[in-house]
Write a protein that binds this DNA or RNA. Structure first.
Lengths: 138, 138
DNA sequence: CGGTATCCCTAAGGATACTG
DNA sequence: CAGTATCCTTAGGGATACCG
């Protein structure tokens, strides 16, 4: 008898849990919350984008990272990549319904943090003060 | 007259934008969506945790990373660190109101992804199929 | 335009050992 | 127990060059 902690049948849908090391949902969670991925999803929420336009929208991302990020998100079914063969070539990125749902939630998180910027700044100032006690003369 | 739109004066609160490279909200956003930070916040949503209990809850995190992660989150005002001087020492971590709000949104995202695990898996299978065309004999 | 390929370097991150 | 310190390896990520 195998380890009894998992009483999941072979043909049943496994229970997803982001806390579990090997759970696919954790991988997906990490993919969408990755540094550039969340910003890309947020941007595509505003409408479709072509590669370089997206690159301009997401300040600071390099071509390489944007490319890798978009591949990962396409792979996970978060967005579609539509290649228009023409001169010059065009590639349009758009959210899938799933990607839109994810982006919506990321938006909520971003809104909260944008609105709480002041509170975070105050917390940081307070923390800095608590850490560095005034120089003690010895 | 609270925040109407963008009447940003010198001494007024700046408009936060996660897309901006140097916006504090982007930093906070990245801190909170960092690999281990989101899981730590999610865990603390279940109740307070001591260091090693949290380490067990967040599968796969090393002592070092958990320590660094918790410091960053404390710094941003997402959680409190309560040291009980005793033998053995105890340190309790708990969410602040802000941290709880953030965690709540992360939970929504995690729920969505846990529920969509099947869809993601299908997308991945489809993607793999589209990428590797059947070996072409030359 | 929309990438991929290569090079290279920094920083993330794990393992281990040690301290209060 | 709750970390910090150290060491070391990997991988993230930027810059550049080049192809379809």
């Amino acid at each position: 008898m195998p380890s009894e902690e998992t009483e999941v049948g072979p043909s049943r849908e496994l229970v997803s849990d982001v806390f579990a090391r090997d759970c696919p949902s954790r991988a997906a969670f990490e993919d969408v919350t990755a540094k550039w991925a969340s910003l890309a999803l947020l941007a595509l929420r505003e409408g479709n984008y072509r590669f370089n336009a997206l690159r301009r929208r997401v300040e600071g991302v390099s071509e390489k990272m944007l490319s890798q990020t978009l591949q990962a998100l396409e792979r996970d079914g978060m967005l579609t990549r539509d290649v228009v063969t023409a001169i010059p070539p065009r590639v349009e990125y758009a959210l899938t319904p799933l990607g839109a749902q994810v982006a919506e939630r990321l938006r909520g998180l971003a809104d909260l943090l944008e609105a709480s910027a002041g509170e975070v700044a105050r917390a940081r100032a307070s923390y800095a003060g608590r850490q560095s006690q005034p120089p003690v003369r010895t």
